[in-house]
Computed example of a mutant assay.
Amino acid sequence: MKQITNPRELRGLKILSEPDTIIPMGKNEWDVRSQSKDAYYHVIREYKDRHAQQRGQATWTCTCPDFLSRNVVCKHQHAVMLSLKISGEIVKDYEATQTEGVESNIICPTCKSGNVIKYGVRKTKFGENQRYTCNDCGYSFVVDQGFHRMKNSPKTITLTLDLYFKGVSLRKIADHLIQFEDVAVTQVTILRWIRKYLAQLGKYAEKYQVEAGNIWHCDETTVFVKKEGEKKHYLWIWNLMDAKTRYLLACQVSETRYVKDARKPLAKAKEVTAVNPDAIVTDGLPAYKQAVKDEFYGLGRIQNPHVRLKDFETKPNNNILERLNGTFRERTKVVRSFDSAIGAEAFAAGMQTYYNYIRPHQGIGGMVPAQLANIPLDLTGNRWMTMIGLATAGK
């Protein structure tokens, strides 16, 4: 509990510290012993209606002279409130006077009001969820963190996602769950979870601009998709990374490698950072030359920042992008092929989230790139759960 400074509240705490001073007389009635004479005062808690009770907005009365003459919260009422708080009962009108009860980031799903306060917890077999109530319409609700109506725990589902992006096959994930989590799920269920949350993460619009460095690296890799009439049809994934933060600024999918395709990751990178690079390092693909010129000519501190590599040994080289492509291949060699271009795009978006927000990077001291890019998100603990919650809320 917080430090108490209110004089009446301090006297109420003194009453509470003495034995047999508060006697329950009913659900919302108590007798509180007087400190000055051998007598008891009667404290009553009343609710105007059901909605007021849900919001915890009670009317308190007492038969003591202090309350009757001044109509203020007396020490006897404070003693009862403190007793209820210590015993675990949630007294909303008391808490509202002591703390900031309004949750400014939570919106009521019924009336869309932001006038929302915490209203206890809902116990589930996976733990406790914070409940809220709306002061405007009286509706009580639990915020959907992305796992609403899921039969398995968020821990199990996010563990599945993490193993998937680390290159573990569906069969091995199912075996891991039954061995270490005592959870029996089929490979079809695991695939359904992956598709669901890949779609959510694919729709997640990044809210914050990236504090990127001035040297970017761009390269492309292939991913195979199933296409009727073709044995091996592949698409191109274009990755563009900031060398300083290792943040993956863009991850775009295309069917070809023309200039218009090479411009897509460059244009996307311009959206997420306000910095114009001094240099963009690429391999020898001819399309990059015109694409970089179209996107950045005259915008940066130099006329044309394109650095086209002659080979893999001469510095500057594109090794950090080659390592990133290796991370992609850790996953794609197990998948072998995707169902469609949409599936490949969802995979690319999921990999971008995994690389920027989930996967620690040794090149930046074990942090995730989003931390070095000064993105103001709490990326401690279960980072998958954090990102799914943001994607669900659309924040």
Rank of each mutant, 00 (worst) to 15 (best):
A341L: 15
K92F: 08
L299C: 09
V210W: 15
W216F: 11
A96W: 13
W60Q: 07
Y204I: 07
G366D: 15
F347L: 08
R11M: 04
G365Y: 01
T282L: 06
T21P: 07
Q145Y: 13
K395I: 10
C251H: 09
V121A: 12
K112N: 13
D283A: 02
R122G: 12
C74Y: 06
K48T: 01
H76G: 10
G343Q: 06
L266E: 09
W216I: 07
H176Y: 15
E295P: 03
R195P: 02
M387Q: 06
E89N: 04
Q53D: 06
R55N: 12
D20A: 14
V116N: 11
C64D: 09
T186S: 15
I280K: 04
V91D: 12
R55V: 00
K270Q: 15
L235F: 02
L68Y: 14
L191G: 09
K260L: 03
N239W: 01
E313T: 14
N214C: 12
A344C: 02
Y208T: 01
A349T: 04
S140I: 00
N325P: 00
N239E: 13
G56H: 07
M385G: 05
D242Y: 12
K315Y: 13
V185G: 15
M25I: 00
G88T: 00
R131L: 11
A370T: 00
T189A: 11
D278A: 12
T221H: 08
A262V: 06
T327C: 04
F67M: 04
G366P: 12
F224I: 12
S87T: 07
G298D: 05
L163P: 01
G300R: 12
H176K: 07
V91G: 02
Q130N: 03
L170W: 15
G213M: 06
E211G: 00
V32D: 10
D93W: 01
K395R: 11
G365N: 05
S337G: 00
V334A: 02
D93M: 02
L249S: 03
I358M: 13
A267W: 09
Y357S: 08
N28E: 11
G300Y: 15
Y40D: 08
E211I: 00
Q362I: 01
V275L: 06
I320E: 02
T97A: 09
D283N: 04
V32Y: 07
L285S: 06
I280N: 11
E103Q: 15
N318Q: 09
Q179W: 07
D283L: 02
I358D: 11
T282W: 12
K123N: 12
I194R: 00
S36H: 14
R122Q: 13
R336Q: 13
D93H: 06
G88L: 01
Y297K: 11
G363A: 09
V143G: 03
S83L: 09
G284E: 11
M1P: 15
I358E: 10
G363K: 00
Y94G: 05
